[in-house]
Design a protein around this nucleic acid. Structure first.
Lengths: 217, 217
DNA sequence: TATACATTGTTAAAAAATTCACTATGCACC
DNA sequence: GGTGCATAGTGAATTTTTTAACAATGTATA
């Protein structure tokens, strides 16, 4: 096992590594066996040094004068990110987005297996989606403890996100991905990550506006 | 209208401004009229200076010794981001995620109105979701031109993302939000933004692993 | 009107991230 | 085995972003 240099790794590096994995998989499917940092950089839209630096946090994976072996690099990155295993996930809040995620194939393909789904709406409880039966939220803490679940996904409306988080925390969860557009508070030892694609729409809207302003100057 | 100082604005600032808007709305609902950068910072999980700096890119919105008027600040930020209008959006790819977004209320609430949806699957064409009829992708370029659409959302499988992008570009779109896990190429004048929540799961998984390693040391 | 206080706006310092430039090294071919 | 070439790894320089510190200024009170 490659031993990571003990140094704080930038958040941005983690995000990029995920992109590298993605692109390496595409290359693998295309039958490409070896890739240089320059070509990989080009297809990921980053600088080649950036890639080499990002990888350097975790070890040496390339061959000088040659490049990186696609398969090996991908595996090495996945291992570095802790993705050489599967993670059990529970979901709280079975609305439109929740359903879409439950049915989403890619999650499982990436090693994230949704093992249970919870909602507080009596009309939803008992419903089966993608082979998973929706359970009452009050059962959440005990279930996650029993099943040894480590990650929770929140897809409730924003006003119920904190309550969902509390259930998850009570259930001994270690990390939360919050899709609800609201901040939540959690103890230090619980990792919280926010997903909000409205931000990306904001960003696009802003950049379009900027482009137009620049065009006028 | 507040004139933005002509200076490049960090991407991270834009993302944070979106968070500020979110939290300001929560505060407004709670009847809070005035807020200091310190309190807002606390609830957004950032540093107070950060907030003041972020806002300074766009103008002066606060009152020294008092703070910021919640309503005014929110409006000012929205205006700064180009969100004091509605944006017409089209969607390409009506799978699970696409359907969820079509039914999502928050998009419209934020001023992003999905005016048309396209898919290349004959079984989906003609279907109506949330009041929008799915059309054949080949009609996309002409439709977006006719409707004056500026933003396109791609929710196709990754292998069809580039084709979707090409249609959108042909249709004179100005910005793309790509939910498919694959990079796309577009001309300079088209803004592209990627959304991939798998990254966030990766990040959580990684951080959990790190926590545990740190715990062992 | 002056004084105290709170909090912004802003400049300077610090920290972090990115990019550059160069060194080291593996491979292919002679 | 030696030479040339390509490309990874890395330390230094640069750029960007964040944080801290403080000066400016509006409000409230006497």
């Amino acid at each position: 096992m490659h031993l990571q240099k003990y140094e704080k790794i930038p958040r941005a590096t983690i995000a990029r590594l995920a992109v590298y994995v993605q692109e390496l998989e595409v290359m693998e499917q295309q039958g490409i066996k070896v890739i240089s940092s320059e070509k990989l950089a080009w297809s990921c839209g980053v600088n080649p040094s950036q890639i080499r630096k990002d990888l350097a946090y975790f070890g040496e994976f390339g061959v000088r004068g040659v490049g990186y072996y696609v398969y090996e690099l991908r595996e090495a990155i996945k291992q570095s990110l802790g993705l050489d295993r599967t993670w059990n996930v529970v979901m709280v809040g079975v609305g439109n987005l929740g359903r879409a995620l439950l049915r989403h194939q890619l999650l499982r393909k990436r090693g994230f297996v949704i093992v249970a789904a919870f909602d507080c709406d009596p009309f939803k409880i008992g419903e089966e989606i993608a082979g998973i039966e929706v359970q009452c939220s009050s059962k959440l803490p005990q279930s996650t403890i029993d099943m040894g679940v480590e990650i929770g996904i929140i897809t409730t409306p924003p006003e119920r996100a904190q309550r969902a988080a509390n259930y998850l925390i009570e259930g001994g969860i270690k990390g939360i991905v919050n899709f609800a557009p609201s901040r939540i508070t959690a103890p230090e030892n619980v990792v919280v990550e926010y997903v909000d694609f409205i931000h990306n729409l904001f960003s696009v809207a802003f950049n379009i506006t900027q482009h137009q302003i620049k065009g006028l100057l």
